[in-house]
Design a protein around this nucleic acid. Sequence first.
DNA 1: TCTTCAAGGGTTAACGATTAATCAAATGCA
DNA 2: TGCATTTGATTAATCGTTAACCCTTGAAGA
Lengths: 338, 338
Amino acid sequence: MLPLMPVTMMDIAKDLKVSVVTVSKVLRNQGRISDATRKRVLSHAKKLNYQMNWVARSLVTRRTYTIGLLLPEFAHPFFAEIARAVANSVRPHGYHVVIASFEEDPDLEASEVDSLLARQVDGLIIASAQASRHVEMFKRVAARKIPYVLIDRPISGLRACFVGADNRAIGRMATAHLIARGCRCIAHLRGPQVGIAAERLEGYRGALRNAGLRYDSRYVVDAGHTDATGYEGMRKLLHLKPLPDGVFCYNDPVAISAMRAIREAGLQLPRDIAVVGAGNVHYNDALSVPLTSVDQGTCKIGTLAAELLLARVSSDRGLRPKRILIPPKLVERESTRR
Amino acid sequence: MLPLMPVTMMDIAKDLKVSVVTVSKVLRNQGRISDATRKRVLSHAKKLNYQMNWVARSLVTRRTYTIGLLLPEFAHPFFAEIARAVANSVRPHGYHVVIASFEEDPDLEASEVDSLLARQVDGLIIASAQASRHVEMFKRVAARKIPYVLIDRPISGLRACFVGADNRAIGRMATAHLIARGCRCIAHLRGPQVGIAAERLEGYRGALRNAGLRYDSRYVVDAGHTDATGYEGMRKLLHLKPLPDGVFCYNDPVAISAMRAIREAGLQLPRDIAVVGAGNVHYNDALSVPLTSVDQGTCKIGTLAAELLLARVSSDRGLRPKRILIPPKLVERESTRR
DNA sequence: TCTTCAAGGGTTAACGATTAATCAAATGCA
DNA sequence: TGCATTTGATTAATCGTTAACCCTTGAAGA
């Protein structure tokens, strides 16, 4: 017969005619308790199927063993992967993850941060939309002494922990790879974001410069970040006079639709045009022409962010902000093999 | 100057020389409070940047406004989409979501359920691995009067709420569509799971029967659920004497790798063999031959599960279990257009 | 014999809110 | 004026655990 109300320490204590504190001590393995009572308590707790009430414990210890994970959206494979990595990294330490997404809405982001703080999370991991007023918001978080780690999108003007991809390196690596495969006229389908896309573009320009190739702005086209706009972007590139022989695409979805545009134009892939994406999504292998892509170490971002955060959570003295850039890794497939 | 310790109702009360209860009442908009004090409290709360301590409130109200979402893994786009739908559905009601994944490990699943209960979640949404001992586990949950909703994978022998795809209908619809497109020898790349895959197979057989076509077990091959095994499965089918002219694939990743195998065999798609997948993942449009797929209404599963759960959470009388099957929808693309 | 100390517990008071019961002052009505 | 009623706020109890201290008892050492 299981009771309707959850079993409390009080119930165990009453049955065993000991004090609640004794039960608490046994369950925490703390304080001096004889082996006899320890065993009695333990066995009776198991018998009653006792489950700690974490709400009550948290109230007095001021630790919820909960961290907040705030993402722009988590249907996106990139963020889903991060969520997974974070959850798996903190679980062994007894932490749980409260997720929240703000659907790219900065106001919602701010309000969710407050909600998570109200729920007394021990720490926060945030992939923030970079609105200027957010600096204030983060200062509020810091004032409450709640450690937080930014991921993916850094925020300028904020001395905070950050873990993200090395976007310059990604651009450099992708472009250098095309050059190494013999491309001499390399286009770039860039993304819309200010920060990340700009850095990848910089990497692209850097690689061109290093190879002594000329940068021509006509070969850089904004591709949005949806499949449709990537397709359109590629079609624009196909109108250019010296046809590009290589394209570095801001991300994999764009690269995939770019490849479609290339094929439809009657061109051979990768012979006529080689394509590199970024993100290394898991279905790249299954494409008709498997896509070479720069892996941005998504899983590592989640794992490192979690570890960084837990370190701050358990240390009571404020460690100084740490910035980690994950070095990218090129995964070569058919789309550049020539 | 923001204080280091979080502001409590006590702080507000002291400053204003009123009782904590008065503050509490104002903040909850409950009880009789004069307009004058109400305004004083409200403005001072805002000035001190007061944030409700939900842990303390939860302890006394026995409501955490938190639900647990337990998934096999959430990097998978299907589950990621569900997580998103759930979180977005419960947010307007003031709920947050604690996610946990058990990485397809039944033991971990059971222990996570207990952890979530210990954290006093108000309800649970679970896509369970169907181990037999889990029936006991769910009885424990029910004994604690915590409402829960199963999704995606029903558990036999359990009178519980369930929301999932109508797998029989999926199989029937996909197969019927191939028949309507003129296929007469239809193969099936089936999945490994007992429940879901078996139902889709049943639907497949049902559609054949309805059309007066013969069922031949040689044309049903297990495809695992990874891309690699799907590829192998299709190659087996290509060895059969009357070559199949249509394939219903258990899910989209399998379908994609099957298409690759077909192309590599020098066959035309969809002229020689038409392919239908299931799941309707978002990149289907970007493939070289866009994939016809049966949409299983993933988003709806999450939304309905959330609504169902919240209804049980707020009603104190035990509503009786409800089972919802989402009717599938066929999304036709090139892979069957002939 | 007296002190000291450790072992094995128990007591009391938080933690930050809510709920129920209570109370004083102001108001209504005859 | 006098009594009942409403209004507005207070006090006490509680939620389930933990932190900090205090109290026995028995044995060892002086």
